[in-house]
Each structure stands twice: as structure tokens, then as C-alpha cells.
């Protein structure tokens, strides 16, 4: 009987832990990204693909 139960290896807490973990991480990097102080910096970064034309002789 014990093996029957264990063979299901049910761990309902794991999906919950995973979701909480994700929400925390998500809030973290979203805050990091959306901070107003980073705005101009990201604007500069978005222009990087066009710099190779400028750096040529």
C-alpha cells in the first residue's frame, strides 16, 4: 500500500512553490526594467544595431 501511494509521488505543493517563485522573480525584473531612471539608458541601447554604420571610415 505504501508503495502504491508513493508511486503516485504526489507533490501538490511544488506547482504552488513554482508559481510563487515565478511571481516574485517576475515582479523583480519588471521593476528593474521599468524604473524611470533607466529610461534614457534603454533608449540608447535600442540604437545599438545602427552604430555599425556610423563607426565605419
Amino acid at each position: 500500500m505504501k508503495s502504491e501511494v508513493l508511486s503516485r509521488f504526489d507533490m501538490p505543493s511544488l506547482p504552488l512553490i513554482a508559481l510563487i517563485l515565478f511571481v516574485v522573480v517576475f515582479i523583480g525584473y519588471t521593476w528593474w526594467t521599468l524604473k524611470p531612471s533607466r529610461k534614457s539608458y534603454f533608449e540608447d541601447a535600442s540604437k545599438l544595431p545602427f552604430e555599425d554604420d556610423k563607426s565605419k571610415n
Binding site: V25, F26, Y29, F42, A45, S46, F50
Partner: peptide, 28 residues
């Protein structure tokens, strides 16, 4: 994220969205 801006000759619509896109995609 590199070639579409290059071909369209304009920066990506939202660089911030691209960063949230990146971390969410990699994590999920």
C-alpha cells in the same frame, strides 16, 4: 531583435518590453 530593426531602419518598438520578454520567456 537585430535584423527586423536593421531591415526596417528603426529601433525596436519597446526595448523595455524586449527585456521583460527575455526574462519571462527564459524562466517560463
Amino acid at each position: 531583435y537585430y535584423f527586423v530593426p536593421k531591415a526596417a531602419n528603426r529601433p525596436v518598438y519597446s526595448y523595455r518590453l524586449s527585456i521583460i520578454h527575455f526574462w519571462s520567456l527564459v524562466f517560463i
